[in-house]
């Protein structure tokens, strides 16, 4: 639209992230013959796809200086709710619609407690996390088991396993669409601009007549909607819904955002950063797998990565000022 793509001035760490990704890829190409295979890439993308979907909205929340710990629980809740409804005879499209609305309700609730009642977001969204997670388990239980798998209609998996042109998994298509939408929101809409303004200076935003509460509620609702839809997608792909799938999702999402250069205190961040951050996480896990390193060291690596990312962010900040 504007002719050429201009990277925002303040995200000088983006080239560094690209550099890291390139180095990781070169390294993995050399040490592992399996790395450059299409199947492997598709695995990586499938893995980080859900993170990107959720992080794209959660990132905007972080840009306003808040955060959302309930995404994992909302994802699990939505998967279960969707499966439960489909199993009990509600048509799949209707079930998807109801589930998305239910998911958004959680988000609106978060937005209300954080934006209106001004409860610290960690606490408010932790509360929602417990409620949504508990309900997810309960619904599974009402269905009579720990998971919902048997008795789902045949068409249940159609959405999650759909391939565009018979080749591209739907989640990848969605990631591209959602990333584009959020790039668009970031650059072209009031919502995006106001998010940055609120994170930068909340008081000035209020005095400029920005409806801070409304923006925060919309963002939480968006975040929950994407978490909910991801839950539907995930359960549809594997053909089963489990109440514990979302565990630790919130912290992965947080890591992805922080890696991508989003400041916890708000005012800075981008969807491009989220994509790159997710790519780094994906490559790291994939690399460690390919190298045959035990999964528990991946947890250690993830923790180290988070710490290094924050240190890098702090350094780039101190250089500027």
């Amino acid at each position: 639209m504007t002719g050429k793509l201009r990277l925002p001035r303040f995200q000088s760490q983006l080239p560094i992230l690209v550099g890291i990704i390139v180095i990781m890829m070169i390294f993995l190409t050399i040490v592992s013959p399996n790395f450059l295979k299409a199947q492997n890439f598709s695995n990586i993308l499938l893995k980080i796809g859900i993170y990107i979907l959720i992080a794209s909205a959660a990132n905007l929340i972080m840009i306003t200086g808040n955060l959302d710990l309930s995404v994992g629980a909302v994802l699990a809740f939505s998967g279960i709710l969707h499966a439960y409804m489909c199993k009990h005879g509600i048509p799949i499209p209707l079930s998807i619609l109801i589930t998305c609305l239910a998911a958004m309700t959680w988000g609106v609730f978060n937005g209300f407690t954080v934006g209106k009642l001004r409860i610290v977001p960690v606490v408010a969204t932790l509360g929602t996390m417990y409620m949504a997670e508990g309900l997810a388990f309960l619904i599974a239980r009402w269905d009579g088991g720990t998971n919902i798998m048997l008795g789902l209609p045949g068409a249940y998996t159609r959405l999650g396993r759909y391939m565009l042109f018979g080749k591209i998994p739907i989640i990848i298509v969605l990631v591209v669409i959602v990333a584009a939408i959020f790039l668009f929101i970031e650059k072209k809409t009031k919502l995006g601009r106001f998010s940055f303004a609120i994170g930068d200076n909340r008081s000035a935003a209020e005095l400029s007549g920005i409806n801070v509460t409304k923006v925060i509620i919309i963002l939480y609702a968006l975040s929950a909607l994407l978490a909910g839809f991801s839950g539907i997608l995930q359960s549809s792909r594997v053909g089963l819904a489990a109440p514990n799938v979302g565990r630790m999702m919130e912290t992965y999402v947080l890591i992805v955002c922080v890696l991508g250069g989003t400041k916890m205190s708000g005012g800075r961040g981008s969807i491009i950063g989220v994509l790159l951050g997710a790519a780094i996480i994906g490559l790291l896990e994939n690399g460690l797998n390919l190298l045959g390193i035990e999964h528990f060291y991946q947890e250690v690596a993830r923790g180290l990565l988070l710490i290094i990312a924050v240190i890098a962010q702090k350094n780039s900040k101190s250089v500027k000022s």
Partner: peptide
């Protein structure tokens, strides 16, 4: 991390949480 590197406690201890969990699993091969 919190006092020298000026981390937000939430992020610092989250990172350490992952490291600790990984090491716990690694102690006896998971």
């Amino acid at each position: 991390l919190v006092t020298r590197f000026d981390f937000e406690p939430f992020i610092a201890t989250l990172g350490v949480m992952y490291i600790g969990r990984g090491l716990a699993l690694a102690t006896f091969d998971g």
